[in-house]
Design a protein around this nucleic acid. Structure first.
Lengths: 258, 258
DNA sequence: CGCGGCCTGTTACACAGTCTCACAAACGGT
DNA sequence: ACCGTTTGTGAGACTGTGTAACAGGCCGCG
């Protein structure tokens, strides 16, 4: 997965995208700019940039994996997004980075200076729109995660996470039913707003229920895709009662007659 | 607050912005477009658009208040953002809306067609960049909220919420120490990933601790701004132990030598 | 080759924060 | 003054947490 081709995969997953996955550089204009960008290699656990750094570049993962995160002074961490090959990193930053980008596996990154990109976008409106699209996708992804963390149970969060990975793989022409997790339980926990223990427990629960299988802790096999996506979408049996309580007061507001 | 001027306030809060608040239309180019936009009034609880609607317009709140939210089939709701005068709504949408926009108070909204905006941006790169900026601010806000919900306690979440409102007021030239909450406890709960009961109790706790005062449930007075922002920033005494546990493994990764 | 250290992941159990449920009080509109 | 809606509060339940002990893989070292 990590050693797969890097030059040709760009096209696979960049077109038929309804906005579910973030940071897919759907733009030819953008892609072209990256093709002539500066290449850099990072070893596991190295940072691409850190919170507080001045924003100088925008990056695209070519091979490997990275994730974006924020921390509090006391060490609490929230992973904001995982980046796979083809994903952009550092796009939404203004002035200085509000988050950090760290690499999980050996990763090749291509970067272009923010200044030149901005300048190019000023001249070429098409490019600017491509950037807007990329940003919009990131925004949608962040908000989806927001919902997941704010309103879903541990099982639902993990299911949602796995389904997202599965969909991404499918789009990239890889196996959507069996894949490797390129991140640790810590990273997953901090992504889903849980603790490693809960993540671990929930993994075992999904395995016991025959929904997934796990090999070596990092190889996930989806056995019952329907149940998993039901869980992810909140269509599980274990309906919570908040639901019914809230449902009423919500649908009162009618749509303004246009 | 709701009845204040709408034409002149644009400049106040649009320049010295590090990205904390979302959707402030910092752009003159954008502002100009909205000034000739179509005006519409909404009564409390009416929707500006709903999840699934085709994206036709982009909106700017001129007076009043609105919020963006998503729901699950079973009624669970996550409020994604509150919109105040000057804020943009519907910017990041692609194809069809993934969320709904509802109004809390009587609200005046100005809209411009997405198509014409896109077309204008294609021609004027500057405008495209302004849109990128606005999107970036939204993204930053969403990610900040993500952190708050994923890694903070109820008190910290509420404190963070109040501090954000206070800062917004300050920037808009209004009183940062005393303001009205234009949303219900339900809305706040669904914004912070809590229940109304917890929100209510946490309000009382903050009041008992002498950090804030409440009049009529909707008028907040910040008595101890320092304590409140300490809470919001996670600098409280009630340090959780996750912190220390996580802190180590995080700082292992060094920065790649440039 | 086998040993021990180190790291990651798993599991068990007591605890805490938040949620659920029930009800009372306050508010606002009719 | 009435009603419906919103807000506040208490008691008990439960999900997820904190802590800790353990298993397994990886690695360097003797």
């Amino acid at each position: 997965m990590l050693a797969t081709a890097l030059v040709t995969h760009d096209e696979d997953h960049s077109t038929h995208d309804t906005g579910r996955l973030p940071r897919q550089a759907s733009a030819d204009a953008l892609d072209a700019r990256f093709r002539i960008g500066h290449v850099e290699m990072f070893e596991p656990k190295e940072h691409i940039y850190r919170e507080g750094d001045a924003v100088t570049n925008i990056y695209m993962v070519e091979a490997g994996n990275a994730f974006i995160y924020r921390t509090l002074a006391d060490g609490r961490r929230q992973v904001i997004d995982f980046a796979y090959p083809g994903d952009l990193i550092g796009l939404g930053a203004i002035g200085e980075h509000a988050d950090s980008a760290q690499v999980t596996t050996r990763t090749r990154v291509r970067s272009i200076p923010m200044g030149s990109l901005r300048q190019a976008a000023r001249a070429d409106g098409q490019l600017g729109l491509k950037l807007c699209e990329a940003l919009s996708r990131e925004l949608l992804a962040s908000r989806e995660l927001l919902f997941t963390i704010g309103r879903c149970t541990a099982s639902e969060r993990l299911a949602s996470f796995l389904i997202t990975l599965s969909r991404r793989n499918e789009r990239c022409g890889q196996d959507p039913m069996e894949f490797v997790l390129p991140m640790t339980r810590y990273d997953i926990a901090d992504f889903l707003g849980l603790t490693i223990e809960t993540v671990s427990r929930t993994f075992t629960k999904l395995r016991r229920d025959g929904i997934i299988d796990l090999a070596q802790s990092v190889i996930v096999t989806i056995l019952d895709h329907e149940k998993l996506s039901d869980l992810a979408e909140g269509r599980s049996e274990e309906v919570r009662c908040v639901a019914t309580r809230l449902a009423d007061s919500l649908h009162h507001g009618r749509m303004k007659a246009a």
